[in-house]
Simulated scan of single mutants.
Amino acid sequence: KSFNCWNDCESLSALIEFVEDVTNEKSPNFIPQKDRIATFDMDGSFLGELYPTYLEYNMLEYRVLEDPSYKGKASESELEAANAIRDFVRSGKKLPPHFDMIHAHAAAKAYSGMSIEEFDSYVKKYCEKSPNGFTGMNYFQSFYKPMLEVFDYLKSKGFTSYVVTGSDRFIARALVSSINIEPENVIGMDVLLKSTNQGDVEGVNYTYTTDEQLLRTDTLLIKNLKTNKVKQIAQEIGKIPVLSFGN
């Protein structure tokens, strides 16, 4: 595999040297293919992050302030979060402290009631828009090409790559499907899901029926940042990554 988008640099040389070593069966550092795990942060690592803010922030602003189908439905907390994003994007006004969690709770509310399929379609339709500050491209085209070459290189060497992001898991799944990353290889922020007719009954006491769908709720389960990423890797992958990439 070639690295056409890279200059000769220490980081690329170190990566190639390491990978060639651990995939050489004669090396004392050889790693079996089943243990070749690589994890990638998304925003800022292989996806453009600062245009001038996160995709999921831009999408919440649109959902709450512009989406005709959601007009008049947003709560006060959703409106505050969306307007904070708008002020930051348009005038550079600093976001409130701990805005990652403010956004997470607002986003959980904003998409509550959508089925998994509806939300996937919603994200993909939004991603056809141009990122703030860009023309002639959409969100599906906003991946860093040098990092896509790293994905391809590692795949050719028997590595399994996972996306481990602070962004919503289902937003990330919809986005990275365009670069052939499977949904089971995406770990991210999660909200509680429930089935169509479940109501307030706990899932352990309710039996899913064949005519139901899974719906998003407004209950945030985890914002997948910092140490939470480490915990989620342990719970979902069950192996320590050989390589981890972040911006």
Rank of each mutant, 00 (worst) to 15 (best):
S91G: 04
L60T: 02
D67W: 14
D87L: 10
Y139G: 01
P97K: 05
N138Q: 07
G72E: 09
A74V: 05
M42H: 08
E80H: 06
I37D: 12
D67E: 14
A110M: 03
D120G: 12
K93I: 13
T53C: 13
K129M: 12
K124A: 11
F46H: 12
A104E: 01
G44A: 11
A106S: 12
S77Y: 02
P96T: 05
F140W: 01
F134N: 06
V89Q: 08
H98V: 01
M42E: 02
Y70V: 08
E117W: 10
A84C: 09
L79A: 03
E118K: 12
M114G: 05
D120P: 03
Y54A: 06
S130A: 15
N83Y: 02
D41W: 13
A84Y: 03
G72D: 11
C127A: 12
L50S: 11
V89Y: 04
E66F: 11
E49P: 01
T135G: 14
K124T: 11
A104G: 04
M59D: 02
E61N: 10
K71N: 13
V64P: 00
N83S: 05
S69D: 15
K129E: 09
L60G: 03
E78M: 15
P131Y: 04
M101L: 14
K125P: 00
M137F: 08
V123C: 15
M137Q: 10
E117M: 12
G48Y: 09
K94T: 10
G133P: 08
Y139H: 14
G92P: 11
P68E: 15
Y62N: 06
D43Q: 08
V123Y: 04
R86N: 07
E66N: 13
K124M: 14
F119G: 01
A104P: 00
E78P: 03
N83I: 03
S112M: 05
L79D: 01
K73D: 04
K129F: 09
